[in-house]
Nucleic acid binder design. Structure first.
Lengths: 221, 221
DNA sequence: ATATTGTATATTGGATCCAATTTTTCTAAC
DNA sequence: GTTAGAAAAATTGGATCCAATATACAATAT
């Protein structure tokens, strides 16, 4: 007998689904900072009970995306200017190192993928997609570092500030500069210049952080 | 009217209590790698239901301390040699930076506290306490960096490998070397030499990592 | 004796229910 | 009309109950 193998992988649990959806909504800024998240309301939205919702909220809290208070519920966590600044500094520090480690291992495929994302970023006019493409571009290069733990840390750090970054990219024409910097990073990778790629990555993140902080200071004043 | 301020902080929820207890037990190695954690059994130990236990397990999983599988339960996560190696490399990288940032801000109090922990580490004969004192020593210095996010990351990284480190300290006389290195780091801090303190911290962590990896390779072979 | 099938048990994820407490709304007095 | 207090509604954390499925073991066929 011969049968086509079918992937019967376990369907994700309700808690996983809720977690992923809420994480995405927060990261992309669809849930505004300070917004109240009621367990019951979310449970109804996902056609489930409060139990998996609570589990999802608990996970989000561990990652600093929400804060909860008993009898009051969960709110999307807001970050102070100082916190945002620190996270950018940290990202620049770690991502530069990841880039440095990645360059020697970059193969044809990774470089081709990075080039595609870079061009896609240039062409894209829908601001909602910039954040996603930006992530893809950088991760396609970072992956070659062979450092899954570093990347996991980078991911959770980026999760915390991505929604601010997206807003800033959209509102201040930061894409122009980001686009230029992407091209320079890609060029350094193609030339196999690890230390240049690392330095450019560091500056790329710090630049974004600086303009975002300036933007937020203005906005919040 | 004048009242003594009383800390009426919300009593920790059952889930918090279970989480803290399990985290501590895993970090300190009281729960062995691969050990099965049954929700029911834990719930009985804490005189509670499975609901808060599940929440605690979910949080632990987010931090990589356990893995869970449906219908099978949770097991204390084991790390491969490669993963342990990577986490040490990452810690060395980040902690060196934190140290560098901390030195210029170190005040009398912090230095005095660090000196006390350093001496306490030297004197302590109960191996179960080394891990705790070691953490206190380093954190008393790191705190001056004024980088709470970096420190949070350091903490979760250390959580992942602390139990291996404790075992290795105990079994291979690694305390002797650690003690020497602590004194050197403290000395550099007292002299305000940030780059030396940073380099020594990096080497301190890398050293520990190297002997641990060697120890584990031997043990697992 | 061994492999296969069926059944009982163990265990998890989720639904529903309950207790505690906060927030809101209503009522009444001024 | 405003404000203080009481009742009602809302909301969370936890307990108990139910459904789904994996594992262990007994029964059966070869």
């Amino acid at each position: 007998m011969k049968l086509a193998a079918v992937d019967v992988r376990q369907a994700a649990s309700a808690a996983d689904i809720v977690y992923d959806a809420l994480r995405k909504a927060i990261i992309e800024g669809d849930l505004a900072e300070g917004e109240n998240l009621r367990q019951d309301q979310i449970a109804q939205m996902f056609n489930t009970s409060r139990i998996p919702v609570r589990e999802a909220l608990s996970r989000l809290e561990q990652h600093g995306l929400i804060t909860t208070e008993r009898y009051k519920g969960a709110v999307v966590a807001g970050l102070s200017i100082e916190e945002i600044d620190e996270i950018f500094e940290f990202r620049a520090f770690v991502e530069a190192e990841v880039m440095r480690l990645a360059v020697p291992n970059l193969g044809e495929d990774a470089l081709a993928a990075a080039r595609r994302y870079c061009e896609e970023f240039s062409r894209e006019t829908d601001s909602a997609r910039w954040g996603e493409i930006n992530r893809s571009f950088h991760y396609s290069l970072y992956a070659a570092s062979g450092r899954p733990y570093y990347l996991q840390i980078v991911r959770t750090s980026l999760d915390r500030i991505d929604r601010y970054l997206r807003a800033q990219l959209t509102l201040t024409n930061g894409v122009m500069r980001a686009d230029r910097e992407h091209k320079a990073i890609l060029e350094a990778c193609l030339n196999g210049d690890a230390s240049l790629a690392s330095r450019l990555t560091r500056d790329h993140v710090l630049d974004a952080g600086r303009s975002l902080v300036a933007f937020l200071k203005d906005q919040r004043a």
